[in-house]
Design a protein around this nucleic acid. Sequence first.
DNA 1: TTGTACGCGTTATCAC
DNA 2: GTGATAACGCGTACAA
Lengths: 345, 345
Amino acid sequence: MTSAPQTRRVTIADVAREARTSTASVSYALNGRSGVSSATRERVLEVAARLGWSPASAARTLAGAGADTIGLVLAKDPRDLSVEPFYMQFIAGVEATLASRSMGLLLEVVPDAGAEADAIRRWHMSRRVDGVLLTDLLPDDPRISVVSQAGLPAVVVGDPSVAAGLTTVWTNDAEATRQAVEHLAALGHRRVTRVAAPRRYAYTAIRDDAFEQAARAAGLEHDIVRTDLSQDSGAAAARTVLSSPRAPTGLLFDNDVMAVVALTTAHELGLAVPGDVSIIAWDDSLLCRLVTPGLTALGHDVVALGAHAARRLLDVIDGAAPSTHQDATPTLRCRASTGRAPVEV
Amino acid sequence: MTSAPQTRRVTIADVAREARTSTASVSYALNGRSGVSSATRERVLEVAARLGWSPASAARTLAGAGADTIGLVLAKDPRDLSVEPFYMQFIAGVEATLASRSMGLLLEVVPDAGAEADAIRRWHMSRRVDGVLLTDLLPDDPRISVVSQAGLPAVVVGDPSVAAGLTTVWTNDAEATRQAVEHLAALGHRRVTRVAAPRRYAYTAIRDDAFEQAARAAGLEHDIVRTDLSQDSGAAAARTVLSSPRAPTGLLFDNDVMAVVALTTAHELGLAVPGDVSIIAWDDSLLCRLVTPGLTALGHDVVALGAHAARRLLDVIDGAAPSTHQDATPTLRCRASTGRAPVEV
DNA sequence: TTGTACGCGTTATCAC
DNA sequence: GTGATAACGCGTACAA
């Protein structure tokens, strides 16, 4: 419709000519450096604004400045990605931090951790990003060696034990797990089961250990069943566990989706929640609040976590030494899905 | 731990030297252009691979190539963003398309449409993106004039009527609305209410009109109540509507979150779903499948929509003329929340 | 303050 | 047809 009126591209040279000065002065004026008279500075800023000029970021980057961009690669199937509320919350938090520094977030979704390492390598070589955020670390994750060899600023979101000395933002999953187990113990439950994430994630072992320790400390019978975090595997695990002879009366899930489907599974098996079985979810998304009965969950503020991680990454980019930072510990938000253990028959 | 062994940055000159040729030949060889003997080409590719070199994208961009990046600006509060499943699904789809072309997605979250237009202007001036995706259009959206004046490739995700001649990917919301109304009518409902999004979104009017036409055509009493799409406003609307004297027996919500909270509201009012009132949601996320009773919903494949929109944007970047493309129409997925209308007393 | 070399690929031009 | 030389794009930073 409106046939674009050929907006010619404005360069620093145009601004310099129009302001009757050199490109150097324009550059200095714009970046607020000394070496320009305030009269010239005024004139340059006025002209720049009038012409609507902003420096080509490619040129800045080439000249040695940063790319004003941080990168986040996610190794996920796009379909799964859209189911997990975690990532959008995390990204939203990252954006909240970046907005204040007018930096951008470059996002890429790849099939696996190997491709993730490649993407980071490419980004670094092509200087598209000033730093990267790493999530979902595996033990001996290939990304670690890529960023440390390349000297690319990075922040690991996860336990320091797998971060090989990089800056880390982590949550105390062990403490959170303990809270959940103690909550069940306090309600009189004697048999509890953890429905867990795959072993390949670094955090899994941490939660596993904490679960076993806490259960032993409280004198509870305990067990761990493995899933792939999907709805189906959650439902299957719940069904198996709840129909076994000495079924547990307390279940702790490693995410919220599985906990929600377990509500339905329990219902199908004729078990009442929390009358016959109590359920605790990990990650307190909208889901937990909206289902009936509401799910007791270990909630943490993922948006804040993303903002925190991004802030630390900016520090590292600015030259901060590696350090570890603990984010808020997930807290138990009690709702209707947990209650007193049923009386033994 | 591993004290970064100073990986020097590799440039095209390094590759040229190592391959005993000129930088020009390296460039030609890498980009598969003619003018290089296959022997030289082989050698260059081998060296490039060995040195792990990939061209600095800043330099390419400066030399006139594209930025290999598309932009997506969202005008949302980060907290809200993380609640709506739509965006993560959309982004996941976009990524699926971009992955095949090894392009990146630059994401920015800003408070309002004005800031959105600014961000797009900045991106364009600094040549950071080759094109942008526009979602949630307002009537007379400031972004439209920015992209058309700048001649920046863009694709509007929304109704062509507000896209001012830009390439558009849209879903037939009117037809979907009609389906939902006819479904309720077929079940014998005589009074239906639409719990709608704010007027400021362009799609709202389209759905409003379709709702009224379809209800009139089916001879139903009908009404529209306005919300801000939040949980709270959904609950309030449901409460008001359902406690009115001649309460409707069929409700059509403009998103899924409100429909889910309405289940709880109905329960609190002592109304059975679907015995006393039938509920239909718009956007069929996991939520609709996991609640009890399952929610009948107008579902569309948002991941596919994102992939489609990105594909069209790549076409526009490659020079395609503006055109409109209809994505799949949302279809009614019937679950337990809709049933025969209660018998009038 | 300003001229100018530099960063790094791309492409037009030229010599072989 | 092959391959090399050089100009270009655009800001930055140092020397003059």
